[in-house]
């Protein structure tokens, strides 16, 4: 699998983004900066740093990022369950083995992209569940990967 993990390591220079659901505040604000007081400055002030923020740090291309809700168990062996939220980045180029979102038969589907047989004229969307068969796509011209899944968010409780 050539799933891309580089995202985890390149969090330094990103801009903050606007969360798309307007019910939330723009970003989590855990303000660490203490008020300035007279007297000796706190030694901790030198180490002031913005709090970690998923939206700022993990979402590389906010303008290309969309969300989808997983329905069903076709990707269960990849650890993707019914009800998980997939974070989809449309700006990423899909590779062989990427988990992608594609639009097929009038619905969005989440599967592994398998381009092993591209030269033979077809590619496959592979489920991660033996119950389901891979979807074979012959006319690769018409087919388009809608976006690449970069994270899934899973509620545990």
């Amino acid at each position: 699998m050539s799933l891309e993990y580089n995202l985890f390591f390149s969090v330094a220079k990103m801009k903050s983004i606007t969360i798309l659901d307007s019910g939330f505040e723009k970003e989590l604000k855990l303000q660490i900066a203490p008020e300035l007081r007279a007297g000796f400055p706190s030694p901790a002030e030198e180490y002031l740093h913005d709090s970690l923020d998923f939206n700022r740090d993990l979402i590389k291309h906010p303008e290309a990022t969309f969300y989808g809700r997983v329905c069903g168990d076709s990707m269960i062996e990849a650890g993707i369950n019914d009800g998980d939220i997939a974070v989809i980045d449309k700006s990423r180029e899909p590779h062989n083995g990427s988990i992608v979102v594609a639009f097929i038969n009038n619905e969005f589907t989440i599967k592994y992209l398998d381009t092993t047989h591209k030269d033979e004229g077809y590619i496959e969307l592979r489920p991660a569940n033996p119950k389901y068969k891979p979807i074979r796509i012959d006319q690769t011209d018409d087919f388009e990967v809608w976006g690449v899944v970069v994270y899934t968010i899973k509620p545990w409780n």
Partner: peptide, 13 residues
């Protein structure tokens, strides 16, 4: 409202 409401995001089968 696919991009502005959690209730409306796309479903992935």
């Amino acid at each position: 409202n696919y991009t502005t409401r959690w209730s409306d995001i796309i479903e992935l089968r």
